[in-house]
């Protein structure tokens, strides 16, 4: 992830230590300066996200990373960054919660990430990679989406992904979307009118309503343009498993085992959690008799699956929060149990 970020031109990183993502700031602290970038170990996640706010307004590609409790602290800042329409990349390697919880992998921050953990009507793009090569690819793309839409992008991983080792092919960076000129950068007003980066909209009285209308249109545009999703053996699937991130990867083994037994099981793995790839679900809903959602939480992502299919099929659930994780065997058992 770090190498991809540097490759994609990230030149500013601020973070505060928290397990299980310490490898990120540690790597950045030595490699980013070598690439001519700036690394700051901030005094808190509050400071880190506000450094990102400043760095983004100063015009550089920037990133922060943390894990669940730290990302909670960043929420006010994320709301400001979204309101100021500044690009940035945030990584959350989720751990068990609520509270201090534990440091095992979890997917308990889905609501916070996807429904907006901070205040106000804003949206952030949420990417959920499931392998290291995909982390590499999506991290690069995250900077592009952030710049393209002038919006924060969150990479939602978990403690397993964060600490896993896997061979990856280091591809050179190539933008995946058009990158508009940054005409908002604050760098002194020489030769131009002064610029302001602000989020307070008091006057006229309708200003904030109008800005929210504008955001609505912008978010609708992102929803129509950016939806990433992987489907696995869904063409004839009667039971469709829905999972994201590391859970989806584990589910594939269970699905393969089920297929060997003649069970028609497939997988939908959303890669963008916001925007949510509703269409992929709508597409299979005619064939599928049932859905099974697997997630490492008490049930958050499952709500969006139900919404995507308008509750038109039964949706079974396998998941628990707090560091519980599924094995292929556990998922296979559940598949067998719900498959009729």
């Amino acid at each position: 992830m770090c190498q991809a970020a540097i490759e994609a031109g990230c030149r500013f990183f601020a973070g505060y230590p928290i397990t299980p993502q310490n490898e990120v700031p540690e790597y950045m602290s030595s490699h980013l300066p070598e690439a001519g970038g700036i690394f700051i170990q901030a005094e808190s996640e509050l400071a880190a996200i506000n450094m990102i706010f400043g760095a983004s307004a100063a015009g550089v590609r920037c990133m922060t990373s943390s894990s669940s409790p730290g990302v909670s602290l960043k929420q006010e800042g994320i709301s400001y960054i979204a309101a100021a329409e500044l690009p940035c990349v945030i990584a959350n390697m989720q751990r068990g919660g609520p509270g201090l919880g534990n440091i095992r992998a979890s997917q308990g921050d889905y609501f916070q990430a996807v429904k907006g953990g901070g205040h106000g009507d804003y949206r952030i793009i949420v990417l959920a990679p499931s392998t290291l090569p995909e982390i590499y690819e999506l991290t690069m793309a995250a900077f592009d989406y952030a710049d393209h839409y002038r919006n924060p992008v969150l990479i939602l991983g978990d403690g397993i992904l964060g600490q896993m080792a896997e061979p990856i092919e280091l591809k050179p960076y190539k933008p995946v979307v058009e990158l508009p000129e940054k005409d908002y950068i604050l760098d002194g007003c020489k030769g131009r009118e002064p610029r302001i980066v602000k989020t307070l909209l008091l006057r006229p009285a309708e200003a904030l309503v109008e800005f929210n209308e504008y955001l609505k249109v912008k978010y609708a545009r992102i929803e129509s343009e950016l939806k990433l999703c992987e489907q696995y053996l869904t063409e004839d699937a009667e039971l469709v498993v829905a999972a994201y991130g590391i859970t989806a990867r584990i589910a594939i083994d269970a699905i393969d085992a089920a297929r060997e037994k003649g069970l028609k099981v497939g997988l939908i793995r959303p890669i963008t959690l916001w925007p949510f790839p509703n269409e992929a679900f709508k597409e299979v809903v005619g064939r599928a008799k049932k859905f099974l959602v697997v997630e490492m939480s008490n049930g958050q992502f499952v709500d969006d699956v139900k919404l995507a299919i308008d509750c038109s099929r039964p949706v079974e659930f396998l998941g628990t929060g707090g560091g519980w994780y599924p094995t292929p065997e556990k998922i296979f058992e559940k598949i067998e149990a719900v498959y009729k």
């Binding site: 700051i40 706010f53 002064p194 610029r195």
Partner: peptide
């Protein structure tokens, strides 16, 4: 609202966070 009065670039920060924002700004510029 000081940006309404000062004739240069200004960034409005979250409550209490100007030093973090300024840190990044100054390091980059």
């Amino acid at each position: 609202l000081l940006y309404d009065y000062f004739n240069f670039d200004v960034i409005e920060c979250a409550h209490g966070r100007p030093p973090a924002v300024a840190t990044a700004m100054k390091r980059i510029h």
